[in-house]
Computed example of a mutant assay.
Amino acid sequence: MTTAPHSTRTVNLEGAARAAIAGGVPLALLIGLGMPQYAAFAMFAGFTAIFGATEPYRQRAVTTGVAGALQVACMAAGIAVSLLGAPLWLQGTGLVVVLVVAVATLSALRTIPAQPIFPVFAFVVSALVPLRTGDLPLVATIILGSVAWAWLVAMSGAAFRRVLHPHAPHRFRPLADTKHRSLAVLGTSALWETIALNVVGALVAGTVAEVLPGLGHPYWAVIAVVSTLPALRQRHTVSRAVQRVVGTVGGTVVAVGILLLEPSAWWIVVIAVVGQFAAEIFVARNYAVCLLFLTPLALAVSWLSLPEAPGLLALDRIGQTLLGAVVSVVLLAVGRAVERRRGRALGATSSIRTV
């Protein structure tokens, strides 16, 4: 009997559906309970389900669990900074710690995505959400509950495969081989070069963004840098920075158009679910198209927690993304010069091209 071929049309649908459900359900629950100001925490927790999406389920359980713990730790650190008044020096110190821990953790796990964008995003926004000490029990419940839900959603495919795979194997994308992991990577110069590249880029972008007149939200410049710079053993390319700018500008225009219509909180839930689903579909195909969906998601959900004028939001988002892209390209040029001088590639700019 001939086995039906795997359908390429379903390659990304399974992971995209999990990501959308993982973030959408807690967000909808918060809206239903009248607590939209905590939406950002549910969104960051929901990102847990993205990690390890193609791994065998025993390994995925570890990957997703560690990634979820990392998201919780970064949100907790951001909340602590917020409760202490969010002084700039403390934000910078926290950012460095988050980058070191996130890059080391994700590199050891060999995760996809490998860049520390989601832990950094969780930290910098959590540090800005106004909270009081009395809010902590509720916020902790939201974060831990949302991460647990995301973990369960990420693992749910195991049950579906056990029941349905024997009857329609071509409807399920094949899982990747088990990854070999070793903590030995933590002692390599390549890892610490990758960490140094991210720390320098983030601090330079954040400092310039902070002193640049006329623009707010300096953390967007930081996020633009860490999402553009390569992970361990990936190659730093200008095209990644260009795609980041093009996708962000397009996505910002879409987001502003939506926010100017003053959508209800329930429409924001719809935007978040559709945006997360579509972003996962396109992330491996075209990063710019992915950002056309991911940017409205991020801006719309952040807007629930920190409402602002859409026009100013757009100006800051585009300006800070351009700044981050410039910093990233400058680091690319410096990295290439260092490589030529010493005759071998940096750990962060070796032979594998960044997608």
Rank of each mutant, 00 (worst) to 15 (best):
A22V: 01
Q243W: 04
P130R: 02
L164W: 14
G206T: 05
R235A: 08
L164H: 03
D177M: 10
L315T: 15
A76T: 09
V253L: 00
A69G: 15
F160N: 05
T349L: 07
V62F: 11
I142K: 09
H167N: 07
T141N: 07
Q115I: 08
V242S: 01
A337R: 15
V273N: 14
V226G: 07
I223G: 04
S227R: 05
P56I: 00
E308P: 11
Q276D: 15
A80C: 04
R9Y: 08
T194L: 02
P296M: 00
A114E: 10
A224P: 07
A309M: 10
L297V: 11
L322W: 06
L90D: 08
S7V: 14
R162Y: 11
L90A: 09
D177L: 11
R244F: 01
I79V: 14
L13T: 13
R110Y: 09
Y38G: 07
F47Q: 10
D135P: 04
L313Y: 06
L183N: 12
A76R: 03
I258T: 05
A300E: 03
V25R: 10
P130C: 03
G145L: 02
G311V: 10
A108Q: 05
S126F: 00
F51K: 12
G319Q: 04
A279C: 12
V120P: 13
L106N: 05
Y219N: 05
A67M: 09
G343T: 04
A314K: 01
P174F: 07
F41Q: 05
V98D: 15
P213N: 02
N286W: 04
V249Y: 00
R336Y: 04
R336P: 04
V222N: 05
L332E: 00
W151Q: 09
T178E: 14
V185F: 09
T188G: 15
V211I: 15
G214F: 02
M75V: 01
L109W: 03
V120W: 02
R344Y: 10
A168Q: 10
P137I: 00
W192V: 00
I50E: 03
A209E: 09
V274P: 14
T48K: 05
